[in-house]
């Protein structure tokens, strides 16, 4: 399976798949001018290789800031994960919220409702 590792910049998060530990992490600020272009490799990777992910793979999102363009792009990422779950893959999704942060909490709850997916909202943040 092709690896997917994108290094973080000041305006875009790191995207990293760790096959050994079976986690997929999106970590860092997501405020690109064109979020669709930035997240396209991840959406394409999930379309092309998602069926090779091991059962139990954990998708983890820890995004201190993101713009509305990213909100839409991440929705498309989550829809890909949901598609894989519907094909029988056992994948979990965790949305990290820093303590007492309405912004991230609201986003996690919005995704949970809109994607109709079991998204665990967890306090704290993670590093890649």
């Amino acid at each position: 399976m092709n690896a997917l590792n994108i290094i973080a910049t000041k305006s875009t998060p790191a995207i990293s798949y760790n096959a050994e530990h079976a986690w997929f992490r999106v970590v860092g600020n997501s405020i690109p001018e064109n979020a669709s272009a930035f997240y396209a490799p991840l959406v394409n990777w999930l379309q092309d290789h998602g069926d090779q992910l091991p059962n139990g793979c954990a998708f983890e999102f820890s995004l201190p800031y993101f713009n509305s363009s990213s909100l839409k792009a991440l929705y498309q990422v989550l829809m890909q994960i949901k598609r894989l779950q519907e094909l029988g893959k056992q994948l979990s999704v965790t949305w990290y919220v820093e303590e007492d942060d309405d912004f991230m909490l609201e986003a996690g709850e919005t995704y949970r409702e809109m994607v109709s997916m079991d998204i665990e909202i967890k306090a704290g943040h993670i590093e890649v």
Binding site: N34, A35, S68, S69, L71, K72, Y75
Partner: peptide, 22 residues
């Protein structure tokens, strides 16, 4: 907001059309 989020397209300048609704 929900309708705009679930639509596939973006504007020609990369906008999601969600900013003011957000």
């Amino acid at each position: 907001f929900k309708r705009q989020m679930t639509e596939e397209g973006y504007g020609e300048k990369g906008g999601a059309g969600l900013g003011m609704l957000q």
